[in-house]
Design a protein around this nucleic acid. Structure first.
Lengths: 124, 124
DNA sequence: GTATCTGCAAACCATTTGCATAGAT
DNA sequence: ATCTATGCAAATGGTTTGCAGATAC
């Protein structure tokens, strides 16, 4: 689903479907939901494509972000992948997990006067 | 209030009240609420104490954090000061602003099953 | 007097960028 | 054929650390 959308989007703006991009798309489907950092994404990509460079990974993640396919956020001094494009909560509990609750999101939006893209919960 | 607490805490663990520390405490009272990054804190400290080094600033912020006097969080690739030690929302709107709403915080805690220290709201 | 503190300067490390070569269409 | 993409390697920039001299107590 997201994979198909990603491929269509890349085609639609006349960019090239390189093997690196196709594998990155696969990997994001596979582990993106876990909010990996860039090193973790690179390691997983290299399982399928050992010569993948960090530079290419980086360039393409920026591209995907620009195309609205993914989002990126900083947590613990590292850039992390956000594949969930719907308003939600990211909670750290050893790993970063998603929670959804439209009612709470709506209340936050009313309180702060802005539309929420997502929320990072820093626990005690 | 916080200033007094900071001084008492430093004394109570037998650390030294150097001019640099006293000025840092003053500066945190003055601009800490605005969640400045470390460079901004250093610039403000240097208005009062021009030879303050980044190293000393850094060491002391880590110390204050260890003593529970302040908190630090990362936003936009930079470390920022958190002086509000009560559960709350940090919302970026050009600058980072605090919002409090215990009811919403309580709902989030119920939803995610953890006590919340604070929440970073990423707007659209 | 002494254990702590400061500040210079170098190290660290996750990005971010420049560019020559390779590749998709 | 052409324009984009890759990957090496160097630059960047915000921290983080080591240590010799200075200072609070």
């Amino acid at each position: 689903m997201w994979e198909k959308k990603a491929i269509e989007t890349i085609k639609s703006v006349n960019l090239k479907l390189t093997p690196q991009r196709l594998i990155l798309i696969e990997v994001l489907c596979e582990i993106g939901i876990k909010h990996p950092n860039l090193r973790e994404v690179l390691e997983k990509v290299r399982e399928y494509f050992p010569t993948m460079s960090f530079s290419t990974l980086y360039t393409n993640l920026m591209l995907f972000k620009g195309l609205g396919l993914i989002d990126l956020f900083t947590f613990g001094d590292e850039t992390r992948i956000e594949m969930n494009m719907k308003p939600h909560f990211n909670v750290y509990n050893g790993e970063i997990r998603d929670f959804c609750d439209n009612e709470i999101i709506k209340r936050i939006e009313e309180k702060v006067g802005r539309k929420v893209r997502f929320v990072i919960v820093i626990p005690e």
